[in-house]
Design a binder for these strands. Sequence first.
DNA 1: CGCGGGTTTGAATGAGTTCAATCACGGTGG
DNA 2: CCACCGTGATTGAACTCATTCAAACCCGCG
Lengths: 239, 239
Amino acid sequence: MKRLMNRVGHYVDFKEDYFSSLLDLPHRIETRRPGEEIVTVGQRIDFVFVIESGWAIRYRILDDGRRQILNFMLPGACFDMMSMASAHSDHAVSAATEVKLRRIKSVDFLKAISGRSELATAFWWVAIQEEAILREQIIRVGRRSAKERVAHLILELNRRVAAVEGELKDFIDLPFPQALFADALGLSVVHVSRTLTKLKAEGFISTGGEGIKILMREEMAEMCDFDSRYLHLERLKLG
Amino acid sequence: MKRLMNRVGHYVDFKEDYFSSLLDLPHRIETRRPGEEIVTVGQRIDFVFVIESGWAIRYRILDDGRRQILNFMLPGACFDMMSMASAHSDHAVSAATEVKLRRIKSVDFLKAISGRSELATAFWWVAIQEEAILREQIIRVGRRSAKERVAHLILELNRRVAAVEGELKDFIDLPFPQALFADALGLSVVHVSRTLTKLKAEGFISTGGEGIKILMREEMAEMCDFDSRYLHLERLKLG
DNA sequence: CGCGGGTTTGAATGAGTTCAATCACGGTGG
DNA sequence: CCACCGTGATTGAACTCATTCAAACCCGCG
């Protein structure tokens, strides 16, 4: 919840008690192991989830097993606020890593924010940002080369982690297999591996442990046409 | 405006006077010729647009000229409700055909729907549907073959036109060049042409005039894995 | 030590692109 | 009325980027 506050706090003048009402909401804390489902296709959506820790993915599986990841969801992510009751999910959500999440009834959540216009505005901004991320994903898989795609996604995730942690680092933890990158970018695992190797050879990044170090942020952003403005983090002072 | 009513009317029990308040809102009617811009990149968004007639596209141009169309917007489309004041557009909107549009100040629009919860709910549904269309677009360009992409988009547009016109036809008017299809699907114009030829040869569709006739809807939907449920038209009785 | 998940590498294949030429068609001017 | 454009659609041939398949590799773990 602290991370959600970090994130949402960028959009409103932060006051602790705005959030206390959210914290006090009736809820359940659940955990999922890597690969376990959180929301299944066709499920009725009457809960809002908040990711307390860990990474999740939103995706769809086609009949023959192809998988497209729509978006990565990291700590502080908050879904599905939009859908509300009486909609059925047309895609699934599952855990990429070990995940801890808070489950709140949609009605309770909506009641809590509807009274407080600052909070409502903040979550409105989160929804706008979410949609911008989806649009950027379309551009990425639709019109960018493999090299650009991989670099662009790395930079996006790096920024989004920064928005949650409050500081922009040159290292991103990616505690999940490259297959997730492949399915997010519409590439094969093999080609993701080759592309990462090339990015390393060209000095943009280096890998070590379960993450990636960004060595030449400027040049890399230039190369893959990454412009962080779409993430709407302007209130953040990350340089 | 009639088309917007058609569309939105699926989600609430239709009452003429819900909409009269929208019709009476201060507005300007504008027209754009094919190719002319409606919203430019970086522009501050404090207007809601309603397409009265014609087709528009939402897209982004990359530095080297590559273009990715994010979504087609057809008569009855209503944007950008989400963004509200103080956001800058990270993509452009322009006319695909001759377009007539209604421009309403965001504040006026929001005031008008905020009082009437049925209207607010209806536009909420429109926003949900819009987002589902974006997600489907990601899956289309990310994990489908050229043949599947083209077929899938044809079926989607067909359904969306039906939602506006109130009846599902086997013929779709597509009064714009194939280049738009290409840029929407992340393909080259040449390959779109080849793919359409193949779809014709296999008996799925036929072309004539400025449109496409769907000859084997079932088989085609099966082939490209099209499931109209994501469009959230359930209240529509289109079979 | 040996197993297993995940990554890397190589070689062959394939889907889609690019470039260039041709075609089809509607509009315009002589 | 017809020749001439210009835009967009189609076709062919060469090429490229990414996929597929298969083997090797790496490393943490029982």
